[in-house]
Design a protein around this nucleic acid. Sequence first.
RNA 1: GCUCCGAUAGUGUAGCACGGCCAAUCAUGCAGGACUCUCACUCCUGCGACUGGGGUUCGAAUCCCCAUCGGAGCACCA
Length: 525
Amino acid sequence: MAKEVGPVIQEILAEVARKTPEEWQARLEAIAPELIEELNTKKEPDKGLKALDVEEGQQVVMRFAPNPNGPPTLGSTRGIVVNSEYVKKYGGKFIIRFDDTDPQTKRPMLEAYDWYVDDCKWLGADPDEIVIASDRIPMYYDYARKLIEMGKAYVCFCDGADFKKFKDAKEACPHRDVSPEENLMHWDKMLAGEYEEKSAVLRIKTDITHKDPALRDFGAFRIVKVPHPRPEVDDKYCVWPLLDFEGAIEDHELGMTHIIRGKDLMDSEKRQTYIYNYLGWKYPKTTHWGRVKMHEFGKFSTSALRKAIEDGEYSGWDDPRLPTLRAMRRRGILPEAIRKFFIEMGVGETDISISMDTLYAENRKLIDPVANRYFFVWDPVEIEITDAEPCTVNPSLHPTEDRGCREIDVADKVYICSEDAEKLQVGSKLRLKDLFNLEVISMEPLQAKHIGDSIESVKKEKMRIIHWAPMDGVPVRVLSPDGEFTGIGEKQVTTELDKIVQFERFGFCRIDSVDGDVVAYYTHK
RNA sequence: GCUCCGAUAGUGUAGCACGGCCAAUCAUGCAGGACUCUCACUCCUGCGACUGGGGUUCGAAUCCCCAUCGGAGCACCA
């Protein structure tokens, strides 16, 4: 059969090749004009996120579920942006849920709850609902009881290592097969605080012989006798749910339709599916993404950062060297740029390592039209203009947008960057941007004479054009991921508090404070 | 040890469910050029990839198998 079809196809293909695309289009027009439009509309690349598998008329409910044990970082931002973007696209509900059920190892930080909500709003992902797991512990207990009664959960008194032995051998531990009644009794004792930490744990029965060891009887609750940092919870509970249990119950209770999360939680779905099946629930549709690593930031963990901050290594959670959202914000990275960055990144399952350059490029396009231009001279040195007439110049605030001018008074000296000064020698000609032209007459001390104002001669003689600062400028400190720059800037930058400006030939900065020295946070080049 | 994922230019990404419209999209990066009184912006040009090997097929980035590399889970962490 295939042998017979072969030559026929060859011939058809040859015929296709004989005529030009235009001829074929004409032929199509003749026999099926209604298809012409399809020909022209095909193959436009999809921008943005891929379509979600949404049923006809369905409202989507999606969530971002952090543990508030530190502030949101660029890593967590992906979850905020992508989930909220889908909700915007399809209409529905975006929920932020704090999975704060570990008062000990990943102890939540009280301030961080607000930080998350704050940063979500800043990112344009205002949550429709805020849920805090530590407020809902009784509900988890109810479901636990139900599962015990069904014979689907049991209190296990094995030591961690012992249980692992049973599990690896695909054998049930001695506690697996006791009656629901007895388990209920143990469970009540657990809740009453009669057992010590680590002495008992509630497990969900799955399939102890499952070929994937990750799926064999997983833990659902453990005993932690440490008060919760939230004052309204404090020492109310000594039995805490583990993520697989808490997440499973909440995703159903909150009516989640779709879940997008890291692929490290792929096995979670398989474990949680046992709970869903026992309770007769339908699991939400899930998608996973891989790890994102930024080239510029090495490995960092929230707890390591926390320690470094306490040790004074960083100035705080918004230190410009940190990958936190608060730092990005302070540096003048706009939320729109961050959203776009993550949306264009998509939701692939591969682990990726991406450079901040991509985010910076996005941000630069947004701020370039709105950032006023100023001179900032880092590492300044004085240059004396021996024959200068005092004058006032008015460089424009923006090279293309018409937004008025600055005003700078100049007498007989200005500051220039030492790195520009180093390139000079006696006889060098240069242009002070928006001011006038000079010829160097002495290196030590650095002196020059006025050789005209004409920009034409600058072009003709290909003089270097450098920026400068007046003697009555203000001290400026720029804090950047690569350290601190100090120098002199125009007085007028003090009117730009909280705005993003461009220091010419240096880069964009957000003006952070103007009382005393001007402090600016470096955005990017 | 057992199990589960993934692999397209330097970096990301589209295409893969349904094999031919793919000598492979877009962005960023890099190189060159135009514009510009900034090393910014804008515009133009160029560079650059289907991990390897088998198989199925007239035809494979796309389907199957193996290998390699990378990631993850097997917690009384999230």
